[in-house]
Amino acid sequence: MLTVEGLRAGYGPVEVLHGLDFTVGDGEIVVILGANGAGKTTTIRAVSGTVARRGTVLFEGRDIASASPDAVVRAGVAQVPQGRGTFTDLSVEDNLMAGAYVRSGPVKDDLDRWYSTFPILAERRHQKAGSLSGGEQQMLAIARAFMSRPRLLLCDEPSLGLAPLITQDLFRVLQTLNRDLGTAILLVEQNANLALRIAQRAHVLETGSIVISGDAAQLADDDAVKAAYLGM
C-alpha cells in the first residue's frame, strides 16, 4: 500500500532523513521507533508532504512524493500530527467537519460513528476543542483524521504528554480501528513497549537512518535490541 524508497528530507540545508526504505502493507500497523531527534516526526511529515523531501513515496501505486499536503489527504492518507493539532477555537463538531473537508456527500453517518466510538466527544460537541483535556484532544485528532475515510493513517507520537492509562486506552482504540476498518497505520512512537504490542512490523530509526527492521513481536523479545535502542 505504501512503499517508501530512498526517502530524504530535512529543513533548509539540514538533512534529517538520509534515505529511508520501508513499506506498509494493506491493513498493517507498522511502527517506527527511535529516540528524540532520530527523525520520527520528519518521517511522518515526509510522507504527508509537509516537509521538503526527495525519493519515492508510492501510495497505492501512485507516486505522491511531489504531491502537496492537501493532495496527499485526498489520495487517502490522513495524519494525526504530534501535539494533536486540533482547531482549538473551533467546536468539537466543527473539528470533525473540517476532517471531512475532502469528502463530498453527506457525513452525518460518520459523525454518528465517531460520536459513538468516543462518547465524550458527543457530550462536548459544541464546546471549543481547546477546552478538552489532552486525552480528549487526542481522541478528537484521531476521529478528525478518520473523518476523511483514509486508507492509511499516519500517527505521530500519540502517547506524548498523556498519562500511561490513557495512552493504553488510545493504543487499544487504534488497534480496534485498524482491525474493524482495515485502515493501515504508520505509527511513530517513543513508547516502544506499547507500540510493539499493537504493530505487526517495526523499524528502529537512529539519526535519520533505519538501523533495525523486523517483526514487532521478535523485536519486543530481543533483549539486545531493547537494551541498545529502545531503552527498555
Binding site: A78, D94, S148
Partner: peptide, 24 residues
C-alpha cells in the same frame, strides 16, 4: 458553508488545515 469552515480552520491553525486537505 464549507468554505466558511475552511476559513475559520485556516484562521485558527494553518498547518492542521493543510493536514485535513484544505488548500490554505
Amino acid at each position: 458553508t464549507r468554505i466558511g469552515l475552511a476559513m475559520r480552520a485556516v484562521a485558527n491553525n494553518q498547518p492542521s488545515s493543510q493536514l485535513v486537505g484544505i488548500r490554505v
